[in-house]
Every structure is written in structure tokens, then in C-alpha cells.
């Protein structure tokens, strides 16, 4: 008792203080390292990550049509745009946009618009060729996208996401 009291009164860093802190720190690091696997197991597993790209044959998609394919459990829209649609998409680059992005950046080849068909609001699948801007319309909470997939009206914060893709040749695209 008396030794303890004296130590507290003197308020100096003792061997015992050091041992308390060191033990606590080692304990905390140990608990955190043990907890990490319990959290990280929730992240996508190796087999989910492995299924991360698909190849699509574009020759079967006529002008003015959209095809929906499944990639990573989500729909991807591939639209073969008409000349008229491309003109519209480019001319609206200067329109008042919530998430400004030029059409050239959204479509590597202007006739092929490839984007993830998931509304950036809360993840519904927008409907093709509906809404006030001649593009896509999300029925869940009323977001309108234009023919470049840019958000124009409604609660969605961002444009429809463009996935990573590469044209292997003129009729094949690899998504992912």
C-alpha cells in the first residue's frame, strides 16, 4: 500500500508504468491481428475475384440496340449507338451536368457505349430508352440518364459507371 502511494505521488515514470503500457500495447496489437481475419473473410473470396472478365461478340448487336450481359453479378449495358445518338451525346457535353464528363471519355469508340447497368443511387437496373433524356431511367427512385449514361435528373450522384474494357478486334470486346 505505502509503496504504491509513494509511486503515485511522485508521478515519475517507473519500471511498472512502462510494463503496464507495453503489455497493453502488445495486447491491443494481438487482439487487432486476431480480429483482422474475422473481418477480412467478408471481402470477396479468391474464386469470386477470379471470375472477373468476359468477352462479348459485338457483331450480333444491331445499331440502335442495347444488350445486357452479366459481369461480376451485375448487368453491363452494351449499346450500339446510331449516328444521331452520338451527335446528341457529344452536343450535350456542354449541358448543365451534375457529374460533368465528356462523351469521348465515356466511349472509347463512339458507336459502342459500354457501362455498368447499375444505378449509382441505390443499385437498381435502369430501364433502356426511357426517361426525359432519351437514355436510361431508374424506376426505383426516378433517376434519369442521357444517351451517354450521364446523370441528368433525380437522386443518383454519379454517371453510370464505365467498366474497364478493351477491343480485342472490331467485333470482340473484353470487359474487366
Amino acid at each position: 500500500m505505502t509503496t504504491n502511494d509513494r509511486i503515485e505521488h511522485e508521478e515519475e515514470v517507473t519500471r511498472r508504468n512502462f510494463l503496464y503500457v507495453a503489455t497493453g500495447v502488445v495486447g491491443a496489437v494481438g487482439v487487432a491481428s486476431a480480429a483482422w481475419p474475422l473481418v477480412d473473410q467478408m471481402n470477396p473470396s479468391a474464386d469470386v475475384l477470379a471470375l472477373s472478365s468476359v468477352e462479348v461478340d459485338l457483331s450480333a448487336i444491331p445499331k440502335g440496340q442495347t444488350v445486357k450481359i452479366l459481369w461480376r453479378g451485375k448487368p453491363v449495358f452494351i449499346r450500339h449507338r446510331t449516328a444521331d445518338e452520338i451527335t446528341r451525346a457529344v452536343s450535350e457535353n456542354t449541358a448543365d451536368l451534375k457529374d460533368p464528363e465528356n462523351d469521348e471519355l465515356r466511349a472509347e469508340r463512339p458507336e459502342w457505349l459500354i457501362m455498368i447497368g447499375v444505378c449509382t443511387h441505390l443499385g437498381c437496373v435502369p430501364l433502356d430508352q426511357r426517361g426525359d433524356f432519351g437514355g436510361w431511367f431508374c424506376p426505383c427512385h426516378g433517376s434519369h440518364y442521357d444517351i451517354s449514361g450521364r446523370i441528368r435528373k433525380g437522386p443518383a450522384p454519379r454517371n453510370l459507371e464505365v467498366p474497364k474494357y478493351a477491343f480485342l478486334n472490331d467485333t470482340t470486346v473484353k470487359i474487366g
Binding site: M42, P44, S45, R72, V118, H121, L122, G123, C124
Partner: peptide, 30 residues
Amino acid sequence: TVITNLFGAFDFYDGMGESILHLLWGGFSV
């Protein structure tokens, strides 16, 4: 899908919202 996406709103740095969602889903979607 809608309810888990709510947590994607906590997007304070680039990719944070997405990381949260991937953690919740254990994949790229429900």
C-alpha cells in the same frame, strides 16, 4: 441491393464506398 447500397453513401475518399460494399457483399454485388 438497395439497403446495402445505402452504406456506399459513406464515400469519403475515392473508392471507400465501394470497399464498404464489397466487404458487405463478399463480392461485386448481392
